[in-house]
Amino acid sequence: MLPARPGLHRRLLTWAWTVFGPFAGLALITALFAWMTRHSGQFLSVDNWRTIVVHTVIVGTAALGMTVIIIAGGIDLSVGSTVALVTVCMALFMKKVDPLLPEALRAWKVTMPLAIALGVGVGGLCGALNGALISGLRVVPFIITLGTYQAYRGLATWLASSTTVYVSAEMRPPWFGRIVAIDPEPRWLLVAPGVWMLLGLSLALAIFLRYSLPGRYAYAIGSNESTARLCGINVPAMKVWIYWLGGLAAGLAGVLQFAFLGGVGAPTTASGLELRVIAAVVIGGGSLSGGEGTVLGTLVGCLIMAVLENGCVHAGIPNAIQDIVIGVIIIIAVTLDRLRRGRTA
């Protein structure tokens, strides 16, 4: 049976709703907080939005990786632990390993770039291990990453001998701290370099998901793994690769967290980050049953979370109520998104 073709204006409307729908929630929440804090007007100030976008960067970077994983029908609960492990590894490297390097190498000021590379590498390794375990043992991702969630956190605590590892200020070049500084330097950047980096990576990932073979394969695996196998896709290898990608993103988020904390390698940091990351992807339209999710949606999801947290602080809502509000918003956002899809499908 041929379904009736919708009229042109109706199709335009659904198209607009699909593209701008996610922003509607963001606009609504922004308007709500702007109204609640209308006396000072500080909530809508440029400075405050610079703050909000910086607070989006860490969750957002990790969420990019999580988007791909969720599109491929997986989940990664170990993101927060990976971030903690990365900060500890970077701090230990700068404190313990770096002094052992030859003087000639250090004269080139390679310490921080090396630490960053190490951080991203450790993240990638964690992700690849997740993927290898999931493919190799054929256990669902939820269980495997629940295990590595504990294991990576434990590894971080063990490496750091249960304390926080501090890196002296001299070892941190000024540009490193500026990555996630609220006031960008130079000024013409308008927002922190980390925000631009996140935008750049997002654009790259969006193009990748749409125009590359592995990108399309991720959707196939998430939508129906059997079909993917049937179509000649090497599913186990793809999974390792996808979790590796997610791990790289988590590693980068760890590097940013390291910068955000001012060179502190803390094994307890970023606890609960994984749930915020998953919430951001889900608010942005990702489906935990796989096959759905967009980079734009994820970014908006992260922004919604950051605006909520910042807005609650500005409006003087107590901590306990904040948590309730955020929980309720997550449920509403996802329900609305399902309704929206129900209409366009």
Partner: peptide, 21 residues
């Protein structure tokens, strides 16, 4: 912050306070 190990929360609070002037 609620828990006494939420470093990033406390940093964000300082940021928000600065932004709020």
């Amino acid at each position: 912050p609620q828990k006494e190990d939420e470093r990033d929360k406390q940093i964000e609070l300082v940021h928000s306070a600065v932004a709020a002037g």
